[in-house]
């Protein structure tokens, strides 16, 4: 129903025009079909260059699709919208360096002219949610990598985006910070019921987080070769045999890919 926030991807193709100069178009995404339920934690897993960012950028409305359909709640996506918050790996470009933490998080509300007292209340709550209370006056260059990603997450929450689009958000963090951020993200997902689209090339991270994992084949002509269901509750202990089996399966899948 159009009321719900289900994402429906149907026969999606993408070729970048620069790749398209020859007679034969080279498809970065080749016939992607995918349904993502409202409130799902969906992970896109694949080697770098396989088109994970491309599919996220299409869903975010930044990149035009070549063919096919991408719908959210029954509405075709063709441009960015506040319903979809983005969290990029490269926080240095994704946070405005001339605004402090507070102003970065407030930006969208201010742009959309939300009334001041209400706005401040929302920003305060979001800053608290990501535990940046004592850092709200700091500028991005004064923040650690983990704190910058928290700013990006808080910004999406402040905008009340229902879908969080995260492109390797923890890829640049050290392993300790990454684990903390993963746990916080899961907490946030459970508390808010948001849909999360999460890109990673790290199998462990995918299995630790995802409710569903779409595994991509190698580029070009990337397809989703398998979508894995992971109904197991969080927090997950990846040393358990059941998870080890899943991780091994995915590794085998990639290994097969490589031979072909």
């Amino acid at each position: 129903m159009s009321e719900s926030g289900d994402i429906h991807i149907d026969h999606l193709y993408k070729s970048y025009s620069s790749l398209n100069m020859e007679k034969e178009p080279v498809y970065v995404l080749n016939d992607i079909n995918l349904d993502i339920k409202d409130g799902e934690f969906h992970v896109f897993l694949g080697w770098s260059g396989c088109g994970k960012s491309t599919i996220l950028n299409i869903i975010a409305g930044f990149v035009e699709k070549t063919q096919g359909s991408v719908q959210i709640g029954g509405n075709e996506i063709y441009k960015p919208g506040v319903d979809r918050g983005v969290v990029f790996q490269n926080a240095d470009s994704a946070i405005f360096s001339w605004l402090n933490v507070w102003d970065n998080i407030e930006y969208g509300l201010r742009i959309r002219k939300s009334p001041k007292p209400e706005r401040s209340e929302v920003v305060r709550r979001c800053i608290h949610l990501v535990q940046l209370d004592s850092h709200e006056k700091k500028y991005p260059h004064e923040l650690s990598g983990g704190m910058k990603q928290r700013v990006q997450i808080a910004r999406s929450i402040a905008n009340n985006s229902h879908i969080l689009i995260m492109d390797e958000p923890f890829g640049a963090l050290d392993s300790q910070t990454r684990r903390i951020m993963q746990n916080e993200l899961i907490q946030l997902w459970r508390d808010t019921g948001k849909t999360i689209l999460f890109v990673t090339h790290d199998i462990q991270e995918a299995v630790y987080l995802g409710e569903k994992i779409s595994v991509f084949s190698r580029a070009p002509d990337a397809k989703i070769i398998r979508t894995i269901d992971l109904p197991q509750p969080h927090p997950r202990d990846l040393t358990l045999p059941s998870f080890k089996t899943i991780i091994q399966d995915i590794q085998d899948l990639f290994a097969e890919e490589y031979v072909i």
Partner: peptide, 17 residues
Amino acid sequence: SPITIQVAQSQGASPFQ
């Protein structure tokens, strides 16, 4: 960076904004 622009777009900013 295009990312910087995209961040503003996804928060509802118009081209002029």
